[in-house]
Computed example of a mutant assay.
Amino acid sequence: MTSMTVTRRSLLLGATAAFTLGTAARAATPTGPQLLHITRDPSCGCCTAWADLAREAGYMVEITETDDYAGMKAEAGVPEPLWACHTARVGGYIVEGHVPFAAIARLLAERPDITGIAVPGMPLDSPGMGGGLHATADVVAWGGLAGDATPFAF
């Protein structure tokens, strides 16, 4: 017969591993966690908060900093009325601003024929703007079948 002793340390390590695996699975693909590449102004604190939430949601986060705000938006093809503080790329899509992570998950699951999704401006209580991981905001889609901008409900 085998005897097993459970210590607080082994219980804590097991719980930590389960939490980490569960968190990473939320943004995972069959080959592993999704890469979310964020381009942002180096002095923007709310962009850092959104990036931290993206990590918490299970994304692998890569950040590029630039002082060329308009160039960042133009390079990504974001229509000016949809501009926000940071621009991200994930799974072949553009994600502009403080987009809720549930909307990104839906985007990646459904893979619609659009260029990207956005939360224009910097709305209070959106993810990274005072809202946490599960915060919501009005999201719009653009490009492809969405045209200039249409609601992207989730």
Rank of each mutant, 00 (worst) to 15 (best):
V78C: 10
T23E: 13
E75A: 15
T87Q: 04
T23W: 10
L53A: 04
D41N: 13
L36H: 02
L12A: 15
G14Q: 05
G91R: 05
P33I: 02
T20R: 03
M72A: 15
A74C: 07
D68K: 08
C44P: 08
H86C: 03
E80T: 09
F19S: 11
A18I: 11
K73C: 11
K73F: 13
V90T: 10
R40A: 14
A27M: 08
A88S: 15
Y69P: 00
A15G: 05
D41I: 06
A18C: 08
M72S: 10
E75T: 14
G45P: 09
M60Q: 13
T87K: 04
L35E: 15
R89W: 09
D67Q: 11
A88L: 01
C44I: 10
A57I: 01
T87A: 09
L35M: 04
M60T: 15
D67W: 09
L36R: 02
L53K: 05
T31F: 10
L21Y: 06
Q34T: 10
A76E: 12
A17L: 15
V78D: 02
E62T: 04
G91W: 06
G14Y: 02
G58P: 06
A54G: 08
R89E: 13
C47A: 13
V61L: 04
H86M: 05
L35H: 04
L13N: 07
R40K: 15
V78E: 03
L11D: 00
L21R: 05
A51M: 04
R55F: 01
E80V: 11
P30K: 06
T31A: 15
E56L: 15
A18D: 03
V78L: 07
T87W: 06
C44T: 09
F19H: 08
A28Y: 06
Y69S: 08
P81V: 04
A84I: 08
T39V: 12
I38D: 06
A84K: 02
R26M: 09
A57S: 11
A54S: 01
M72L: 12
L35Y: 00
F19V: 14
A27S: 09
A17E: 00
T39F: 10
A51D: 03
D67Y: 08
E80R: 12
G14I: 03
R26E: 13
M60W: 05
V90P: 05
D68G: 07
